[in-house]
Amino acid sequence: MATGGRRGAAAAPLLVAVAALLLGAAGHLYPGEVCPGMDIRNNLTRLHELENCSVIEGHLQILLMFKTRPEDFRDLSFPKLIMITDYLLLFRVYGLESLKDLFPNLTVIRGSRLFFNYALVIFEMVHLKELGLYNLMNITRGSVRIEKNNELCYLATIDWSRILDSVEDNYIVLNKDDNEECGDICPGTAKGKTNCPATVINGQFVERCWTHSHCQKVCPTICKSHGCTAEGLCCHSECLGNCSQPDDPTKCVACRNFYLDGRCVETCPPPYYHFQDWRCVNFSFCQDLHHKCKNSRRQGCHQYVIHNNKCIPECPSGYTMNSSNLLCTPCLGPCPKVCHLLEGEKTIDSVTSAQELRGCTVINGSLIINIRGGNNLAAELEANLGLIEEISGYLKIRRSYALVSLSFFRKLRLIRGETLEIGNYSFYALDNQNLRQLWDWSKHNLTITQGKLFFHYNPKLCLSEIHKMEEVSGTKGRQERNDIALKTNGDQASCENELLKFSYIRTSFDKI
């Protein structure tokens, strides 16, 4: 039985969820670079991206490699990797027998973001014989899940209580170790020597080791999670996991709180800001991140802002960003909400898709409305799209047979046209069989910064309504002859009103 693990408890099935942008060198404390989270699957090609990484700022997932063999891993080693800020997950990587050479110096898994409450997941690794993470000293947050690894031993010899604050939620089941077939031998045991430290858990006094050649490092209890030197002297209180010299914040392997210019500090002093819960960055760093993602459509890219001495992905609820200094300031009234469309555009074809934009005031991208039916549609669209004030790209209304009016965009005031449909149009209306009105132009103002209007096959939309939009939106004169079809717009509506004058002759039985 794995020490510190839980057996036999019912657990939810383990679901495996399925960018080499360097964020800056980590400095003297770390020998390499800070790398983003990685999802490495199918083959070993991307694994080489770990070569210079000291910190993975995010998670590391290595999974679904069915053609790899043990010899493929023999020359692979990433000794610079010290810390993973989120979680480490391995799933069905064939041929991998140990992690001792792959990650010989991995010391800390912070667990800032977890995989279903777990910071370390080893699942269905069919050839893994031992973990071998002999320098792993601290899992700051989260638990361990090690399950269905039929060859995995050296679990009962690990004292997880020396690595985690609590072992109650560890789930370590259905491994070879369960069948008591392992016969784990710690260093020196074969020669009758006791080389590794022994600890007591559940009444068992057991030597602690990761492999037959690597003991588990056990520091004096007084050192807590700070770690200790090879001689057993406690590291500085700002260290986490390990250090090369005692009581020196510049000799830590990793930091308990924050890293700044080669030393570990309790908090980031001005003019620095907390970033990702582990390091200090200056304003320029946060500003660069903001600008890199301002026009990016890459998933996970955030326009970072500053709030409460932190550089964070977005302002919290009730705050909006001051564009001059990136500071989050309290909103006066309802907060603006910028919604970034991942692929640059979004099609609204149902109430469900409209709900995804609920509360958005600025759309960074283009909207395509293609709704053919739905219950209580006008009210639903207004509830979900009615706060949109600005669209950076274009607005396209296409084959939306259920629409009679666009009044559900009740606050839309600006279409920038930074991206144009077919390279020309910022407003595009095609084949809307029941569209009769755009907006009530006596109450609604709309500016279209650039781009043209396109109207074709809107049989109940009168040309007068379209011409009014040209005047109000500032697009009059931009359109070419064929942009607004004269014969297919309003051709099934009563669009022309003329005053009919009647004269009559009164007659009676005795007068003409």
Rank of each mutant, 00 (worst) to 15 (best):
K80G: 10
I306F: 14
R162K: 13
D165C: 14
H28R: 04
H59I: 03
G241W: 02
A198N: 12
P269H: 14
E238F: 05
H48C: 03
L102Q: 01
D101E: 11
D86W: 02
D101T: 13
N257M: 03
G203T: 07
R162D: 08
S284P: 02
L152W: 01
P36Q: 11
S54N: 13
Q303S: 11
S225P: 12
E238N: 10
E33L: 10
F258T: 02
P220M: 03
V173L: 15
L60P: 00
P316R: 04
G203N: 13
K148L: 14
L152V: 04
W160Y: 06
L289W: 03
D184A: 11
P249K: 03
G32A: 08
L60N: 00
H302F: 11
T189H: 14
C328S: 03
H214P: 06
D247F: 07
D184Q: 03
H302Q: 14
C235M: 00
T329W: 07
D159N: 13
A190D: 13
C182D: 11
M125S: 06
G37N: 14
D261E: 02
H28V: 07
G232Q: 08
D177F: 11
T157K: 06
C255S: 00
Q299S: 03
C53E: 00
K193V: 03
N257K: 07
P36W: 05
C280H: 00
C243E: 00
C286H: 03
P316K: 03
P104V: 02
E314F: 01
K148R: 15
Q276I: 05
E33D: 15
P246I: 14
N322W: 06
D39C: 15
P31F: 12
M65T: 03
F205Q: 10
S324F: 08
D184L: 13
D277K: 09
F103R: 01
I82D: 03
I122P: 06
N179D: 05
Y118M: 13
N105D: 05
C252T: 02
T189V: 10
Q276P: 02
N242C: 10
L260F: 06
H214E: 07
L44I: 10
D178W: 10
Q303A: 06
C311S: 03
A198K: 11
C215N: 14
E314Q: 04
E97H: 07
G318S: 09
P246C: 08
S317G: 08
I109P: 00
Y272G: 01
E124A: 04
L128F: 13
P336C: 02
P330F: 11
A230M: 05
H290A: 08
G203F: 07
N105R: 08
C186E: 04
T199I: 07
H212N: 13
D248T: 02
Y304K: 03
L131G: 01
Q303V: 07
S237R: 11
A230I: 09
Q299M: 06
H226V: 13
E71G: 10
I163D: 00
K67A: 08
V34H: 05
W160D: 01
N149H: 01
S161M: 08
C243Q: 00
R256Q: 13
L89M: 15
F123G: 12
T68D: 10
L99S: 01
D261W: 03
R92T: 04
C186Q: 01
R69S: 05
G58E: 00
K310Q: 08
Y319W: 15
V206K: 08
F285Q: 09
A230F: 10
G37F: 06
C219R: 04
S213A: 04
E168D: 05
C223Y: 02
H28Y: 11
A254I: 02
L120T: 01
L174M: 13
E147P: 01
Q216W: 08
C53D: 00
D169G: 13
N322S: 13
F116G: 12
Y304F: 15
K191F: 14
R208K: 14
M83D: 02
D75C: 08
N43H: 07
H291T: 01
S143M: 13
M321T: 07
V206S: 14
G333S: 05
Y319Q: 14
D101K: 06
L63V: 15
F205W: 15
S143N: 11
Y118A: 10
T250M: 08
V173W: 01
I109G: 00
L81R: 00
L96V: 09
H28W: 09
H214N: 14
L133E: 01
T189D: 06
E33V: 07
H290D: 02
K148T: 02
D159M: 04
H28G: 00
Y272L: 15
Q276D: 15
F78Q: 02
P187E: 14
C234Y: 15
E51D: 00
N43G: 11
K67V: 13
D277Q: 09
V93F: 07
V121R: 02
R69V: 07
N308A: 07
P197A: 07
N150V: 08
L44E: 11
D184G: 15
D277P: 02
C182F: 15
L106C: 00
D288S: 12
C228N: 05
E266S: 15
Q299C: 07
N242E: 11
S161K: 07
F283Q: 04
H28K: 06
Y304R: 03
M38S: 02
